[in-house]
Simulated assay, not measured.
Amino acid sequence: MHTLPESPALAVGWTLQYEFMFYSIIAMLMAFSARKMNTFIVCYAAIVLVAVLFLSSKFSSMSQYITMVQLIGSPMMIEFLLGMTLYRLNSDNIFLPKWVAVTFGLAAIPLLLLIETQDWFPNFAGQFYRPIVWGAIAFVIVWSALSLEGIIKTNKFFELLGDASFSLYLVHWLLLPWVAHFYDVLGLYDELGILGSVIVYFSIA
């Protein structure tokens, strides 16, 4: 998924590179007086499409000299488009009916498991399989959750985990290899077993 020639110093920071490019595009559009959400969505989609077409053309070898094109044309950038669309729906109070949101919310993960285990879409969309198939299901999950806000009471513990999730994600990359090292040195895999290891890792997290 990482398309740049070199990774950042902190490897998990590769996701921030895509975020930086996304916000740079938004800043550029604002500099050209874009203000309405629909304008941002359409222009952003057009910019990503141009980059994708460029990377698929006979001039794609030139992208090694313009690394930002590799980022903009990455399938990952489509997921930002899905996020912008969700924001548009949410800001305009366009929500799913409660029963639809609950049904979609409960069915989404089993549906994804069926799609993957049964290989329902073999060779579909190439490198864009993830943002189209996984992205569509993630879109439905988040839209369902937004549609149920205020209806289902917020759990403070899960809210705390959500707020801390990205910080934990950055720290885990540094911490967990050391935990695995001490597991090997001390032979803790045999001592604690799978359940004990799950408890240890969850406690550290």
Rank of each mutant, 00 (worst) to 15 (best):
L71G: 10
K98T: 08
L96D: 03
K153V: 15
L82I: 13
L96H: 05
W99E: 08
F80G: 00
N90L: 04
S60E: 03
G83S: 04
I66L: 08
M84V: 01
V142S: 11
V142A: 09
S61I: 08
S144H: 04
Y129N: 09
S144Q: 01
I94T: 02
S56Y: 04
F128E: 08
Q127C: 00
F124Y: 15
W99R: 14
V48S: 06
P131W: 09
V69W: 12
N90F: 10
S91G: 05
F40N: 05
L81M: 03
D119G: 12
M76K: 04
Q70N: 13
S144P: 05
G150D: 01
D119F: 00
R88T: 07
F121Q: 11
A125N: 04
V69C: 15
L146H: 02
P97W: 07
K153T: 15
A138V: 09
N155Q: 11
S147V: 03
V100T: 10
L96G: 06
L111H: 05
G83C: 03
F104S: 14
M84E: 07
A45H: 08
P131Q: 09
L81R: 03
L113P: 00
A45G: 14
L86C: 05
K58F: 13
Q70M: 10
Y87I: 10
Y87S: 09
E149F: 01
E79P: 00
S147L: 08
L55Q: 10
Q64H: 07
L53C: 10
Q118P: 02
E79H: 03
L112M: 13
I151R: 13
I115E: 08
M68Q: 10
A145H: 04
T85Y: 12
F128H: 12
E149H: 06
F54A: 04
T67E: 06
A136W: 03
N123F: 11
W134I: 05
A51V: 11
W134G: 02
I152K: 09
T67S: 05
E149V: 03
F121D: 13
I132A: 11
L82W: 15
I152R: 14
Y129D: 12
L114T: 02
L71F: 12
C43P: 00
M77P: 00
R88E: 06
A45F: 15
A136G: 03
Q70T: 11
V140S: 13
I141T: 11
E116L: 11
I115M: 10
P122F: 11
V48T: 12
C43I: 00
I137Y: 12
K58S: 14
N155V: 02
W99P: 01
W120Q: 04
M68D: 12
G126R: 07
G150Q: 01
G73F: 08
F95M: 06
L112K: 01
P110R: 14
L106E: 09
A136L: 05
G126V: 07
V102W: 10
